[in-house]
Design a protein around this nucleic acid. Sequence first.
DNA 1: AATAATGGCAACCGCGAAAGC
DNA 2: TGCTTTCGCGGTTGCCATTAT
Length: 355
Amino acid sequence: MGRPPCCNDKVHNRKCNWIEDDSNTSTYVSTKHGIGNWATMSKKSGYGRCGRIQKQRWSNRLKPDLKQDSFTPQEEELIIKLHATIGSRWSIIAQQLAGRTDNDVKNLWNTKLKKKLSAMGIDPVTHKPFSQILTDYGNIGGFPKARTRFVSLNRELKGAFMSRPEQLQHSLQSFQNFHSLCVKLPKTEASEECFFSNNRDSSNVNQPPVDLLSELQAIKYVTEASNYNSPKAIFSHHPNQMTDCSTSSPLSSSSSSSASHSLNENQVNWCDYLLDDAFIPSNFKDQEDALTIEEKLVSSGAQDGSNNVPSTRDFQASLSTKGTSSSSSSFVEAMLECENEMFLNFPGLSEDPFY
DNA sequence: AATAATGGCAACCGCGAAAGC
DNA sequence: TGCTTTCGCGGTTGCCATTAT
């Protein structure tokens, strides 16, 4: 048998009055037991609420070191940078902001920062300009009809802006306004112990040391490598370069770098928040493909005695190989190249099942 | 003034990893 | 070793306040 259950009655947890429980919880934590087993606390206290919910309440609202004021522009800037680096790891991001909880950061992102980035023409998920995403989608090949549709969509969007110049003007103004909010902060010494610990100096909250960014890049590397199952993952650059886009930051995208040239040096270069998908380690870039797709498919078929119909795994394997190719500058392009080659080798696959 | 739409925030819930028995 | 629970995390939902119509 395992541990005893935490709580089985979910009715207790739903939208109840927290006023009494708050004082009880604070009293329990501060005077009796401290922070420990919340399930046990819930039982012993007899407050009738699940320990996990009580713990969340404590972490998000009752902890004495929580900040109650609104987020500063510097904090927002840091959140965006960290999100661009590691994605929605709210707990890690919140650890870099003294007195903020992951829930606070998450809410800020969902309600405010996402919209700001979108208004600036930046996709909050990929941190790429929408135009680049549309281009990438348009380049997803093998399906001429699909490509035509995306090109058409791209043209329609362009037309919409051209026919409504005030909308374009508004977008540009939003972009400039947000720029002016964010003052570029001086670089700090790398302070490893400052990060990934619970006791951090709030004075350093505005600027992530390079070691942090390096570590976050490592997290991103591991995550994306496992997601894509491909050696062409990410992490092409030295993390020390990350904070300075003006010196050809690896985070900067080609489409945004030109727009940032005219920025005042005291302002943030917004290309910091744009991700390029050219996260290819140089040693991977120089590798040559050992096998063509056809060779791989034939050999896999020969091994198990099956026919030559390509399997998903074959495609993934070839994609993985293609991902390391120097001729492919992005994940999308690698997929495109691989897909085109598949259709060349297996023309029957190109028939559109939907038409 | 009433109603609808929107925004912001807090809480809830499900999932996966870690840990206990 | 396997089963069960706890815990942490992140996504989603619901409530309330504000703004627009």
